[in-house]
Design a protein around this nucleic acid. Structure first.
Lengths: 210, 210
DNA sequence: GACTTTCTTTGACAATTGTCCAAATTTCCA
DNA sequence: TGGAAATTTGGACAATTGTCAAAGAAAGTC
């Protein structure tokens, strides 16, 4: 009786088989991202990834073709976490200065909170220069990030009553350069890194509109 | 007699033992760079590196402590090849427009000629976010590149009769962002990538001076 | 020319890797 | 409940890795 009650109480809600399959893939993808962000692409092994999950190392090849398939899946999953990161900032700001401030603050915040994930992104983007199989996924995410940045720049221009002065790809490249530099400096323990990033972003924004 | 003559004729000039030792290290360092730029950090093995040299794989541990020691040595060697890349451009230009044009052209040229080396640099810089042992060498090179860029920006400002508008680190980050984006696009076979880079650099330069 | 030192090769080593598979286990459905 | 399907395990595999050491070759020294 007690057993029956417990069993009923802890039974998860019904799921279709396909859902469960996807759930496993997502869990493994998340574990891959966690492991990769700690060790980097060069030193993350399937066994280590599996150990960071609730499964054994053999299960990976039941849900994925091979290691790269898993990593690419994880990379695509990563995209979801960043796409809408600045939408709140865009929606809530009412002046260009306020937007620039909030945007800069948000960039700083995500470096503090998710530095390992960001360094993984730069690692993977570099890997894609060597490994063809990573390119599609990387280029897709790169485009997504570009769009994300462009929404901020467009909104900034709107609030300033002006027009953007550069192509979307240019705006993304410039801000990405600042971000990447700040991330490296932050990981190297430079105190001023985040403060400088905020300054530089606030300084750059007006130059992106006519 | 003939033998003696030949022997004399082909004998290389006298070298101190230390010179030879350094020469070997340089040769292995160059081979490491060649291999790394082809395969990337994740897949370049000591045996592969040795195979790209005139030595066998065991010799590496005679001249270097371990793999990382060799790689770091190679990375420092890499610096020499890029430090003075734009000095000619700086020296020869007589107007800001001419400097911007020549600088942009030189950036495009080095992507065409040395794309593998540049992707290696970004790979290693990413690795340094995971691997402490790489940081010193990477940060040193990063500073060197920043100085190199700054000389261009300063000269541009001089020719324009103005003052730079941004910190050296900012100028470097912005241009590096553009360069990295162009490199990736170029390696992905996008035809317009290099042309766009030149445009964007020419467009950016005036914004860096007051 | 013999000896010492320096350099190089070759092979062995333990560890780690991605991949695969057979058996054990769980889940599902009739 | 019983059997079929799906899932999970743990180990075996061949290949590759960084490292090291013993033996051999070359260079230098007296």
């Amino acid at each position: 009786m007690v057993g029956a009650v417990t069993k009923t109480a802890t039974r998860p809600p019904r799921r279709l088989p396909a859902d469960k399959h996807d759930e496993r893939r997502r869990a493994l993808g998340a574990s891959a991202l966690r492991t990769l962000s700690e060790l980097g692409y060069a030193r993350a092994s399937l066994r280590e990834i599996a150990q960071n999950s609730e499964f054994s190392h053999g299960v990976v090849h039941y849900y994925f073709d091979d290691k790269l398939d898993l990593i690419v899946y994880g990379v695509r999953q990563y995209k979801e976490t960043c796409v809408r990161r600045y939408d709140g900032v865009v929606a809530d700001s009412t002046t260009p200065e306020e937007l620039a401030d909030a945007f800069a603050a948000k960039l700083v915040e995500t470096i503090v909170d998710e530095a390992p994930m960001h360094r993984l992104w730069y690692d993977l983007r570099s890997q894609s220069m060597f490994e063809d199989s990573l390119r599609d996924a990387v280029l897709l995410i790169d485009k997504t990030l570009e769009d994300m940045i462009w929404r901020v720049v467009q909104r900034y221009a709107d609030l300033a009553g002006r027009k953007p002065n550069v192509a979307p790809a240019t705006a993304y490249a410039l801000l990405d350069g600042l971000f990447q530099q700040a991330l490296l400096a932050h990981l190297c323990g430079r105190r001023k890194a985040l403060h400088d990033l905020a300054d530089r972003v606030r300084d750059l924004m007006p130059r992106l509109v006519a």
